[in-house]
Design a protein around this nucleic acid. Structure first.
Lengths: 213, 213, 213, 213
DNA sequence: GATGAATGAGGCTTCATTCAT
DNA sequence: GATGAATGAAGCCTCATTCAT
């Protein structure tokens, strides 16, 4: 059913992702990757010219996948607030569901082992976020500050939110934290933070969700 | 004046800090450290039992130094807002002034090469931030949300701010960005964000600064 | 026209010859040979059991070809002097025309990668040279010295001559050098070197050539 | 007595020389060299940056040593004939005494593993031979042919002579062959080959030697 | 006949660490 | 305290060869 020629390549990529995040780039011998992936040492170097080529490919793939996850359902949202909320939910959901990929992105975001071109390509997937910010400013919904600053703080805040949410396994608590976190984010960025969430501490999820709409 | 026997130790630590941030832990051979520091290979292992011992020592030192920098002038501030503002300024200033140390902290914050005890010791220096948040909540100045969430988002936001500020060399622009960034942070966390900055895009720095006081 | 099944075999042999001389035996991966020859990796091992089998086949072929080139027109020459002159011209001409093959022979003449049997077979093609020397001795035209010594010095001298001639691209100069070189050789070997070339530096080719006849 | 720090370096060089000539450059793993030399793998790379650095060093050393051996006693000889005779004896003697070094020079004379600068440096040691040839031409003792040609053929002839002499272990036969070979060389190069050796086949060594003087 | 993905032993080199001086 | 030659385990990568298609 699956392309047999691609199976090993995929196995290597999957294994490498986990090992790299657990042990770092230099901490993970290629021999360990191939052994864990169930292939021969040579096979790894058949699909990837070098160890760096492997991490580069991995980086591009994860970045692109993350960007796509962030966009999910975005087009059906209308206002900037709704879009940011959707973005935040997507981000947190993805970060929680794929902790290894999340960690991988954080760890290698500024890594010298990832080539400059891969870094740039990875960054390009997220340009739509800057557009989102700029659009919000034009619409008068987001404060008229440096767009790049808004983008940086939006991104880092979401990352901090994922960190916090990851600390608990309770789904209800998670939901609660996400709502709180996104509210903080929106308060920080928006022009009219008066329309803030007032029942942050409540447990009636449904209701809170309406506040966003 | 200085203990001559400690000079070499210091030289090793200073050199290692720079090299580790530039090239990573595994990317920096101990031989390179000793050569750059102007000592023999054996000397490094006289002062530090292993390479990991060296990075551990470095980590403790930088973390402690960073924490101290964050606190500077904190005791003279009264309100929570003022304290957070002071904290933000301190953070950005330190991050800009010691980019190597900043990068070191980011890079090794979750590194497996730093021992667990060193990580814990490093973390303990920043507990006062959580106290600050809790105190703000009690005083009704910070929103009554999960304190750990507030802490995480405060920390990550400041980190994002430093990232953005580091992208420019223009001192005036930096000042502007810091003011904007801290304003966003405060808006996100505070109970009454109505007292917001309204002329963010203006060039009248002085005035904006007064808004904070 | 040509057997399509043999085309690939020939392509492999041709490519291998060039690559082996350019890069040596160990410096030339079989994968490089097959790629340059435009065939798959497996194909090479269909025609040649091992890499050593390939070089063995190559060695036999080149040696045999070289021997044949040396003999060209030999039967029509009568005296020993004329035969040696013809031999010399043939040798230099072949060495100049097929530098890759020449280099190949020099390089693998004592190589352990070529099997002993191939070496012996290759050597056998040149036994006629020893016969030539012995015949010359019997006829009183070549000095009565150790025949094997005469053979060794004849061969090495011709090799040195090719080396020198290869250094220039000018055809006239080449011709001149060949004549001079063969004269030196003949002076060294012959019983009556009194009939020597006297106008070595002149440019009147034709005349000098007559001296040989 | 001997410098202990240089012992290992020398052991590596000596071992490498033998192994390289026996098995070729690529056929000799560095691990084999270090094991045979009785040092650790790392030690080889402490003294030589790379495997190529090792062969380069070896090449320079052997070439320089060979050149020096060729010159031995040269200054006390007066005529060109005597000098060439001395040269020939020196060459053969050295080639016989150090067959590994001889083979090394032959094998790597055109090797791509030896750097261009090492090749040039090696060649420079033998420039005096060209001067010798030119001087002989000026004195009217050597034929007025292309000096570079004379040099090439002198060198290759001596090499062929060593090859032949190496085939026997009998000292008397060797002496005989050397005398014969040098006579052939001199006949080839000299202006007046009439003064040739006439008793080449005789066994009275002493006498033959006088013929040269 | 022909292909090329897959194998795994083995090569070159690095580097943390030791220890005699 | 300080040195640096010496060690050898381990890492990245190559490549001759096989085999299912």
């Amino acid at each position: 059913m699956t392309d047999p020629g691609t199976d090993k390549r995929e196995a290597i990529l999957d294994t490498a992702l986990v090992l790299f995040t657990e042990r770092g780039f230099f901490g993970t011998p290629t021999s360990m990757i191939s052994k864990e992936a169930g292939v021969a040492t040579g096979t790894l170097f058949f699909y990837f010219r070098t160890k760096e080529d492997l991490i580069d490919t991995l980086y591009r793939r994860v970045k692109s996948e993350a960007a796509q996850a962030l966009c999910r359902g975005m087009e059906s949202e209308t206002g900037t607030k709704a879009k940011i909320r959707r973005l935040g939910f997507n981000a947190v959901e993805w970060g929680i569901r794929y902790p290894a990929k999340m960690k991988f992105m954080e760890q290698f975001a500024h890594s010298p082992f990832v080539s400059t071109t891969a870094h740039e390509e990875g960054m390009s997937h997220f340009l739509f976020l800057q557009d989102l910010v700029k659009e919000g400013i034009l619409k008068g919904e987001i404060r008229d500050l440096d767009p790049l600053l808004l983008f940086c703080m939006l991104a880092s805040s979401l990352s901090g939110l994922v960190d916090r949410v990851s600390l608990t396994d309770d789904l209800t608590e998670r939901e609660e934290l996400i709502v709180q976190g996104l509210d903080i984010v929106w308060h920080g960025l928006s022009v009219h933070p008066q329309t803030e969430l007032t029942h942050a501490g409540s447990t009636t999820k449904k209701k809170r969700c309406h506040d966003y709409e």
